[in-house]
Amino acid sequence: MSRERILDAAVARIAGDGIDAVRIARIAMDAGVSTALVHYHFATREALLAEALEYSFEHAADTRTVDTGELSSVERLRDMVEQCLPLPGAQERDWVLWVELWLRAVRHPELRPTAANLYARMHIWFVEAIHDGGFDCDADRVADRTLALMDGFGVRALLGDPDMPVERAREEVWAVLEADLGLAPAAHAG
C-alpha cells in the first residue's frame, strides 16, 4: 500500500534529516510514488510527522504486546524499560522522531494531541503492567515518574552523552522503578 510505503520512507528520512530539513520529494522518491501523492496523504509537515510517529508507535506496539504471558511481572516491566531505550536501530530512530515531536509540538499546537495521546498510551501501558503485577504502589504516579526518567535519561543517551551511555540509562531508570515497585534491589538479578 502506497500510504505505508510513504510512512516507512518518512520515518527513515525524518530520523535522518530532521522534520525541518526533510524534503517531501525525497520521501516520494524513496517510496517510489509521486510528490503529489505524498502531498495528498499529508498536507503539512506536522501531519506527516504526526502520522509517521503514530505509524512507528503502532509498529512498536505489535512487538510490545507479544508473549507478555510468559514473563513474570518484574521481567515484563524490565522488558518495557528495554523497549523504551534509544537502542541502536529502530528504537533509536523512533527516539529521534520523539525528540523532533517535542519541539514541533511546542511550536505547533495542532501536534499537541498527538503528543498527549502517545504519552497517555505509554502511561496506560505501564499502569497496566504495574496493576497486573499486583505491586503495592500508586501506579499512576510510578508511571509518570518512569516516563519522565525515561525521557530525561533517554535523550542524553540518544545524544551520545559520555556520562550517560544507554547501559547507564537502563540501570538508572530501573533502580528508581524497582524501588517504586517495592522490590528489594537484590531481587532484580533474574
Binding site: W102, R145, L147, A148, L149, M150, D151, G152, F153, V155, R156, E172
Partner: peptide, 8 residues
C-alpha cells in the same frame, strides 16, 4: 534527568 523529563 527527571527535571528535564517533566519539563518536556
Amino acid at each position: 534527568a527527571v527535571m528535564d523529563g517533566f519539563a518536556i
